[in-house]
């Protein structure tokens, strides 16, 4: 049949395809078996009850896991500046920026204890800031001059490429924290604070810092030029840009347990300038659980949804008792009503 068609190849092919399709399949005749669900009172009330039965236990378990987390937050940016001129103090390289803070532990903290620094009013999600980096340069030595996306921190004053370039690296957080518990020094483990995928792939083991923080403006921390970027975990952590203006980043871990009513003494090197833009700084010590850190929202939201679902189910039960309705009763059709509107 196809050979008899005197058409160009494409339209001929189309017609052949059309003729060859099975004209009487169930699909083309719209006769596939179909399931047509009906929202009966039993199904809907059962669904909402089921949501309640599932959600309330999950919510309670989540709340328990969140309450289990012990979290200590110490805001230090205000107290750790002794001068009236905070910006001048923080920018002066000659001032002694050491600051001692004392925290009393209210509940036992089981190791490992995460040590975070927390910044507020710092928009790491700003578009031009987020884009100011060169992933190629970070990954391999052979791309050290791939700096196109790094403005305004792409080249040093002498014209040589900055490694690592870009605003994100330039603004590296550089406060440091030294801990002692009951006057005994406690080590902070700063290994493996970055994602292993970042350390092994995204940051090259043959890329070393060059011309970093050598310009007129110093934005943050210095880097050890003898260590490859893959081992500069503070930098790697910092370059995972935060989604929100208030964020925490992992500084290190304290592997030992800390008992209740122990006294933690922290010596902070208050180097980082958050005073120019009205930001705040805090030190956070936190244990973790399977749900992550301290986060009550999920648990309470689940309990609330479960409770509301139960209430909706109860409301529908009540409605069906007080005002029972027959499914598919044709007397509800407008022209079957005893006093149709259009007859009035």
């Amino acid at each position: 049949m196809c050979l008899e068609i005197d058409e160009s190849f494409s339209s001929g092919f189309f017609l052949c395809f059309f003729f060859l399709s099975p004209a009487d399949s169930k699909f083309t005749q719209q006769e596939l078996p179909a399931w047509k669900p009906l929202y009966t009172p039993g199904i809907v009330i059962g669904a909402f009850s089921l949501i309640g039965i599932i959600f309330i236990p999950i919510g309670l378990v989540s709340i328990a896991a969140s309450q289990e987390v012990v979290e200590l937050v110490d805001k230090y940016d205000g107290e750790c500046v002794t001068a009236n001129d905070k910006v001048g103090f923080i920018q002066d390289t000659k001032t002694d920026k050491a600051c001692t803070r004392t925290i009393t532990v209210p509940k036992p903290m089981k190791g490992p204890i995460q040590v975070y620094y927390q910044l507020e009013n710092f928009y790491q999600n700003h578009r031009r800031y987020v884009k100011s980096r060169s992933d190629k340069q970070l990954r391999s030595k052979e791309f050290s001059s791939v700096i196109k996306t790094c403005d305004p921190e792409a080249i040093s004053e002498g014209g040589a490429p900055i490694v690592p370039c870009g605003l994100i690296a330039w603004s590296l957080f550089n406060d440091t924290f030294t801990f002692s518990v009951n006057k005994k020094t406690v080590q902070v483990n700063k290994k493996n604070i970055a994602w292993s995928s970042d350390r092994t792939i995204k940051f090259g083991s043959d890329v070393f810092p060059e011309n970093f923080q050598k310009g007129g403006l110093i934005g943050g921390g210095q880097l050890n030029e003898k260590l490859p970027l893959s081992e500069q975990e503070d930098l790697i952590v910092w370059m995972r840009t935060a989604a929100l203006p208030t964020f925490r980043k992992l500084y290190g871990r304290i592997e030992t347990d800390i008992m209740a009513s122990d006294e933690i003494t922290v010596v902070i090197q208050n180097n980082y300038n958050t005073y120019s833009f009205g930001g705040t700084k805090a030190l956070v010590l936190s244990t973790t659980s399977w749900i992550g850190g301290k986060n009550n929202f999920i648990g309470f939201a689940y309990v609330a949804i479960g409770t509301i679902s139960f209430l909706i189910a109860l409301a529908f039960v009540g409605l069906n008792m007080v005002k029972p309705r027959t499914l598919g009763d044709p007397s509800y059709l407008s022209w079957n009503k005893e006093n149709p509107d259009y007859v009035q």
């Binding site: 989604a243 929100l244 964020f247």
Partner: peptide
Amino acid sequence: ICAYSDEKSEIEEL
């Protein structure tokens, strides 16, 4: 936003 308000999330995660 609320569920991930523990403030450690990166842009891509959120």
